[in-house]
Amino acid sequence: MEYKHTGDRVYIRLDKGDEVLESIRQICADEDIKFASFQGIGACDKVVVATYIPAKQDFLLHEQKGMLEMVSLQGNIVTEDYGSLQEHAHGMFSYLHPATGELAYLGGHLHSARISYTAEILLDVVQDGFCGHKVDPFTGIKVWKFA
């Protein structure tokens, strides 16, 4: 992993074996970034995405291995009241279905993604402000809390 911090942006190149969300959290910790959004593209060899099941208030995990194109990565990272960084990301991946050889897609809440070749990620840093989470009383999920 290498990155360049210029103004309100961080340009990130991830390399084979790097984990996407772990790398973003590490850069934010190293650069003292408290609140940012990110987007990216790349290639992965293992991803886990999730679908939220409201009735269970839990996620159903979906794992895929092989050659996966990271068609789209979008997310944000905030600092919780107790100081830890928390990301929220969604990803869309394309791959060739192992049984049919046809193009298939996998997308959802990103749990993890390991880079197989490279990824290019743009981190937009919010300099003036702070954002954390609070629990929404109507849905029971964490939502942005502005300070």
Rank of each mutant, 00 (worst) to 15 (best):
M1C: 08
Y3C: 06
T6M: 02
G7S: 14
V10P: 07
K16Q: 07
G17I: 12
D18C: 05
E19P: 00
V20T: 14
V20Y: 04
S23T: 10
S23K: 12
Q26M: 05
I27T: 15
C28V: 01
A29I: 10
D30M: 07
D32E: 14
D32L: 10
K34P: 02
I41T: 10
G42A: 08
A43V: 06
C44T: 06
D45R: 08
D45C: 03
K46P: 01
V47N: 03
V48S: 13
V49T: 13
A50F: 02
Y52W: 15
P54M: 01
D58V: 00
D58A: 11
F59Q: 03
F59E: 14
L61V: 01
L61G: 04
H62Y: 13
E63I: 05
Q64G: 02
Q64H: 10
K65A: 01
K65E: 15
M67Y: 15
E69H: 14
V71I: 05
V71D: 15
S72T: 15
V78H: 03
T79N: 03
E80A: 04
D81P: 13
D81E: 13
S84M: 07
S84I: 08
S84F: 05
S84E: 14
S84V: 10
L85K: 11
L85E: 09
G91L: 06
M92H: 11
Y95C: 14
P98A: 02
P98R: 01
A99M: 11
A99C: 08
T100L: 09
T100W: 08
Y105P: 05
L110W: 07
H111N: 04
H111A: 09
A113M: 01
A113L: 09
A113T: 03
R114Y: 11
R114A: 05
S116D: 15
S116T: 07
S116G: 10
Y117W: 03
Y117H: 08
A119P: 09
L122K: 06
D128M: 04
D128T: 11
C131V: 12
G132M: 02
G132R: 07
G132V: 13
H133Y: 13
T139R: 12
K145H: 13
A147H: 13
